[in-house]
Design a binder for these strands. Sequence first.
DNA 1: GCTTAGCACTCTCGGTCCGGGAGTGCCAAC
DNA 2: GTTGGCACTCCCGGACCGAGAGTGCTAAGC
Lengths: 351, 351
Amino acid sequence: MVGRTGETQLNPRAQRLLKALVELYIRSGQPVGSRTLTRQSGLDVSPATVRNVMADLEEAGFICSPHTSAGRVPTDLGYRFFVDSLLTVQPMDASDVRQLSIQLERDGGTTELVDKASTLLSGLTRLAGVVTLPRRNGGTLRHVEFLPLSERRVLAILVLNDHDVQNRVIHTEREYSAAELQRLSNYLSAEYAGREIGSVRELLLEQMKADREQMNSLMTSVIDVAQRLFADEQGEDEDYVIAGETNLMTFAELSDVDKLKELFDAFERKRDILHLLDRCLCADGVQIFIGEESGYEIFDGVSLVTSSYRAEGEVLGVLGVIGPTRMDYDRVIPIVDVTARLLGHALNPNS
Amino acid sequence: MVGRTGETQLNPRAQRLLKALVELYIRSGQPVGSRTLTRQSGLDVSPATVRNVMADLEEAGFICSPHTSAGRVPTDLGYRFFVDSLLTVQPMDASDVRQLSIQLERDGGTTELVDKASTLLSGLTRLAGVVTLPRRNGGTLRHVEFLPLSERRVLAILVLNDHDVQNRVIHTEREYSAAELQRLSNYLSAEYAGREIGSVRELLLEQMKADREQMNSLMTSVIDVAQRLFADEQGEDEDYVIAGETNLMTFAELSDVDKLKELFDAFERKRDILHLLDRCLCADGVQIFIGEESGYEIFDGVSLVTSSYRAEGEVLGVLGVIGPTRMDYDRVIPIVDVTARLLGHALNPNS
DNA sequence: GCTTAGCACTCTCGGTCCGGGAGTGCCAAC
DNA sequence: GTTGGCACTCCCGGACCGAGAGTGCTAAGC
């Protein structure tokens, strides 16, 4: 679905004009005419010449005119070529970098950090910021605690990585006393502390294969409880945090309330957005979806600039911003890039 | 700021016409003319007579016309009189009640329950649902656990009421070893389990007054840690959960994007909304704020229908819906009322 | 004195028309 | 290949108009 812009060869002048046109349109929001473009491009040619080039660009699908006698506007394909080949990104504003690095220092739980990243993204870009929650796989088990609730329900408290606490209610095979659960907590904490959550699961599976007859009662209980505790680890739903959606309401191209509602509903529904973000997970560096390239109608007129964030070389999640197709890519891209690096850094368990 | 409608005496016919007018306007969204109103009210009078009455109602401030030759529209004051004196609420749809009572059964944490209540409110009314998080004061301490983090940071895990787990990071006066913290956990859990969180704080304060010299080292540590743990209990920020905001985007009277943005910004900012919800906290039964009665400009054209919810006679929080002034009060009010009762019931620790 | 029919008046809304402005496409000349 | 010229198209805002809806007032009727 991503446009292949290599097939059409554009001569340098045409590229230069396309670049100027897109930049101008991003700044003004108005269709760009040949006259304005001539002045803006810095080329020493007449409007008539520019008109000829524009006709070519239109035929190639990079620009189009809303109606006969308006100027030209970039198409999704035009933006694609622009961000792929023409864009010169600005380095990030120094004070913004400082703000980011100060704010994105780990001092609380992961959720707080993700929230903050999302808010910062939206604040710096004045668009909507999204950050997926980091995948849990990489966590190191620190401590486990069990508490009996009513009947066969047990509250499990997992502490991971010094930072994060997870609470889960599990339903056990039989009822356990507080003392029994205390013993289980002690055993698991002693045995598995410091290990990756993933490897804990594997170890447990291995032990389960051993003949149950040979186990003592402690081990049977461990298997019963811990297996239920770690079982659904994998199937945990992905989720993301979004901030500053209301920023999107200021853009003229999104002033249609119905369209806006569909977009906001999609944010609330989460499924489509998550699916889209997933597709950015493996990519390295900044990824951009322009308009309906994404395959979703709701994204007509809307772009998504993302980057995966990673710690210790492992991809943890994706973050980015959502805004109108007509956004300041040159300013937004470095912000997304830097935020992804800083968030990854902050989530690094060794930092 | 709440309108006092008792001062103006309206004869029964005027009341009947006002009632018909408001109902009609709520249904149609169009200004109501004398002709339509005559037919609708069921009164056997001519449009001219109705016009005279309407002129009176306008003079009294209950209705107004958008322009000379449009019909009449209720003012905030008109709505106020309507909900105070004229409204006949419909009993709630039986299947809706069933849905509510099934869904609002406690089976997870408090947060999940509050989320669900908010979503249900918005789903049933097709408006935005809000629910404040219940105040914690009423919690019964179940268990305390401490874990050392880096340096003088300690992770405290509080289990309350069998349902809820809170994690807090506290900064202690000196560094504690894991074993020390274990002893503190044991002591506090043994000593204070089953008590109200509030009374725990009081007990601690009492013990602090005792001469420190006489304390053994365990008690000194208990005071150091526990005091920090329970200190900020009081100052905990209020918060609320909102759901279905996008429902508000379908109403013609809110189709102005700028106005909509201001409202959504207020939802995100939370302060004003919280302040407004606080004012409903003490009131018994369903409370209604109509338009700018609330004192906030953003609420122009927007109404808030709320009810406090309580368990064991104690007020825990407020829930309600936000929608256009022109909403189906007769349908919405019972939904808010019943949801409040059911949520209160679900949060009752003895249930 | 309340109610009513009649009527002139006002205002909105949608449609049409028009001129100015912006921009295009094409052509012929360089 | 580039350029100036020119006719053409289209949008936009303003003016205008008629239909429709509803009002306020007045004078007549019960």
